[in-house]
Simulated assay, not measured.
Amino acid sequence: MAAVPRHRVLNGLRIGLALLVTAAVTVAVVRNWSEVSADLRRVDGGSLALASAFVAVAPILTMLGWRRLLADLGSDLHVAPAGGIFFVGQLGKYLPGSVWSIVAQAEMAARLHIPRSRSAVVGMITLGLAAICGFVVGLPALPLLLRREGGEGVGWLLLALPLVVVLLWPPLLNWGIAVGLRLLRREPLEHNLSGRAVLTTAACFIGAWIFSGLHAWVLVRAIGEPTVDPGQLVVASVCGFALASSLAMFSVVLPAGVGVREGLLVLILAPGTTSTSAAAAVVVLSRFLTVLADVVFALAGWAYARSHHLLTNRAERAQEGVVLEEDAEADSAAT
């Protein structure tokens, strides 16, 4: 029995992944639509537009951080192809497990002659750094999650500053990456990440978390009828969103932390709003906006990736007279 060519297996996996991602995203939107439609009637157009704008900034900053890590390891992509690869691959987070986005990004990046191992390592580092930065930004909201009285955000923020220095100190970070890759039986990095790349990436990720939290702050003000002072509201919404989301990143079985983030965020927001139902309305609309932003960016990335043959199969490329290096290698192997 003849062996199935490698490119056919990969194409089948890509198609299956695309179908699963599309189904997962559709289910997430449909399940929440009735509540979302009711919430939309309570939010004025200005608040909805502002929240949507804040949501849209976060994935851009995350992509820029991912791109900076990739460049530091030797693959400096222009923003356009980087966005095409990153945003399409990001839909993989809506599948159970945390590896699907990394797999999709690695396969697409391979079309640009970026080693799959390098893309995979950058993807794993991105997840780890994003979780660390999210926890640091969310640390001031920890007393709200633990239901402790007092414990204003300033004191916890002061505690977070040395935590940032320790966790993102390049020698320690590179050591942790080396140990993690060894435990996963992966090849080590070609060279250590530079301090400048780590700081730039961390700044992008921290900015992404802040903008993500700001969209929650806008929604709380529009829906939740806050019962706390403005400073506490910022801590609960901005820092609370980062804390709930970063903790949800560890729930690898659930797609995109669905359910975990919402449950934690309701616990954090409820004391500062008129009711638990108001906090629940905020997180439902928040999930809708974040899913919508991911889909819109993925569609834009897909359009670019498709036009530059990062997603086309061999038959489609042959019709257009395009021959990629992997096609030539397959022909050579066949002969």
Rank of each mutant, 00 (worst) to 15 (best):
P115K: 13
R196G: 02
V218N: 03
R196P: 01
G224A: 03
Q105R: 05
Q105L: 01
I206R: 04
I114M: 08
I114A: 12
F211T: 15
A131I: 09
L199Q: 05
M124D: 01
R186N: 12
N174A: 07
W100P: 00
L214M: 15
V103H: 03
S212G: 14
L173K: 08
A208P: 05
V99S: 11
A141T: 00
G138K: 10
L181I: 08
P115L: 10
L95Y: 09
P96S: 07
T201D: 02
L172D: 08
C133Y: 03
I125N: 05
G134S: 07
A222L: 03
L91N: 06
E190A: 14
Y94T: 04
I132R: 08
L158T: 04
M108K: 09
R118E: 12
V198E: 00
A160V: 11
S194T: 13
V166E: 00
F86M: 01
L146R: 10
N192S: 15
V137I: 14
G155A: 14
I102T: 15
V103Q: 02
L214S: 14
G89F: 04
I223G: 02
G153A: 03
L219N: 08
A110P: 14
M124G: 12
A222T: 05
F211R: 06
S194W: 06
L219F: 10
L158D: 00
E149R: 12
P171Y: 07
F205H: 11
A130H: 06
C204G: 13
W175Q: 14
G92M: 11
A131V: 10
W209H: 11
A178Y: 06
T126L: 03
R182T: 13
A216G: 04
R182A: 15
L168A: 01
L219T: 09
E149V: 12
I102G: 12
P170I: 09
L183W: 13
H215T: 11
G92F: 11
L183F: 08
A130S: 10
E187Q: 15
M124F: 13
G151N: 04
R186W: 15
G92S: 10
A216L: 08
A106P: 09
L181F: 08
M108G: 10
L91W: 04
L199C: 03
V99Q: 07
L163E: 02
T126S: 10
N192R: 15
A120G: 15
Q105F: 01
V179H: 11
H215F: 14
V220A: 13
V164E: 04
G134M: 09
L139T: 06
L173G: 08
P162I: 09
V122M: 08
R147P: 00
T200G: 01
L146V: 12
L145Y: 06
P140Y: 05
H113G: 10
